[in-house]
Design a protein around this nucleic acid. Sequence first.
DNA 1: CGGCCTTTTGATGCCGATCAAATTCAGTGG
DNA 2: CCACTGAATTTGATCGGCATCAAAAGGCCG
Lengths: 242, 242
Amino acid sequence: MATKAPPGCEQIVSNRERSMFVNVNAHPGSRPRTLGQLGELSRARVILSEFKYNKGTEIFGEAEPADYIYQVGDGAVRTHKLLSDGRRQIGAFHLAGDIFGLENGLTHRFTAEAIVDTTVRLMKRCSLEHVAETDAMVALDLLNMTTSNLRHAEDHMLLLGRKTSLERVAAFLREMDLRLTAAGVMALPMSRRDIADYLGLTLETVSRALSHLHGMGILGFLGQTQRQIVLLDRGRLAELDL
Amino acid sequence: MATKAPPGCEQIVSNRERSMFVNVNAHPGSRPRTLGQLGELSRARVILSEFKYNKGTEIFGEAEPADYIYQVGDGAVRTHKLLSDGRRQIGAFHLAGDIFGLENGLTHRFTAEAIVDTTVRLMKRCSLEHVAETDAMVALDLLNMTTSNLRHAEDHMLLLGRKTSLERVAAFLREMDLRLTAAGVMALPMSRRDIADYLGLTLETVSRALSHLHGMGILGFLGQTQRQIVLLDRGRLAELDL
DNA sequence: CGGCCTTTTGATGCCGATCAAATTCAGTGG
DNA sequence: CCACTGAATTTGATCGGCATCAAAAGGCCG
């Protein structure tokens, strides 16, 4: 991987033996992490590289060997599974500071793609595993990160199994509001199709739900691009998300 | 909990400082575990109790303090979340030997109930946590168990978000076939409603899908009870589960 | 301005939900 | 063992929410 970059992917820096995650929160434009607590991991010294992936390019594929773990620098990443006929389920969106691609087994369980032009830091997984075998604190950090992912997946099962389309979109907006609202505006990096594949809906249904919320006065669209959303009434939005 | 048993729950044994999980697989009627690898945990000496829960009774509730972790002895357990209006999503079924109720945070994220009369072994969580803080091997075992749960939840998200009713039921049958088929017969402990709430469907739709598979010659029902199922053609069942 | 892509909006269709009733099953007591 | 009872399951009829199909509107970038 460090020797030959795939199309749409460009290596930026590659330093050995540098602490990977130091000053993550000092990264310009990043906000406090809600997933992926780092803890002791930030002290583990590991091989580090920084890559840039163009919009739409694959970072790793499902069932590929999981040799690295990743952290979003600037940009956004989606992870998904595909059925043989092309139906897609997005498992999570990863924003600035989030860790993704952390596996316990040998291979990735999702495909990861850059939603927009994205910089990614990556570290050799084997070096981390080696540390975890002897350092219980590092192992507990890995456990905490995995538990965060599990909690998210469990909540998402309830959404996918039992919520209506309006409830799903409301839940999505609340989740994104927590993670990327700045100056009252939520700038969504992902398309309606991505949102639909995250929520188990079609893009038309997502669009209709957003229009409906707009008509109810709960949210507004901002000028130029439809991907900028203003939440006008968080209280009434919360009522829709059972 | 050890001082006052709730209705439908009866304490059987309570031994301090005994290894909790020794000889799990020697338990009569239990088969090899597919979830919940124990590894080093089986060496951790902890407080142990064994309880019996009657069919339908609650073992712990969502958002209750998670003071114990549990292992199914004989019987079966379902874990679920509820929406305020009663819609239910079952996250997992736990069969003989399975660990459940393992949390990293302070509280349970699901409600757990006995599907049939069930014996459960439980251990104080704090004693386990204490060990994990210093023993990296124990911490890695916890990580492995959590990762198993995560993998299951991730696969289930794809099912709930994107699969048809027939595909969901086929996937369910294959999962149960792996876990509890004995002598060619799958004796399901759970009702059609439980299956429906696991698969994000209604009980009628589950029943129709099973009838359809029966009509296709892929499965047969066995005499006395409709909960005993014979898989006649695993190959064609697999083709339905994309 | 013009071409392409994303999003919105409208019309229609279908899968699974809902409502309803018949049938089978499990438990109980005679 | 069998009759009775209530629960679980199956099966049928109908409904509705979301998917699908289609087209118009808006945004992005040359």
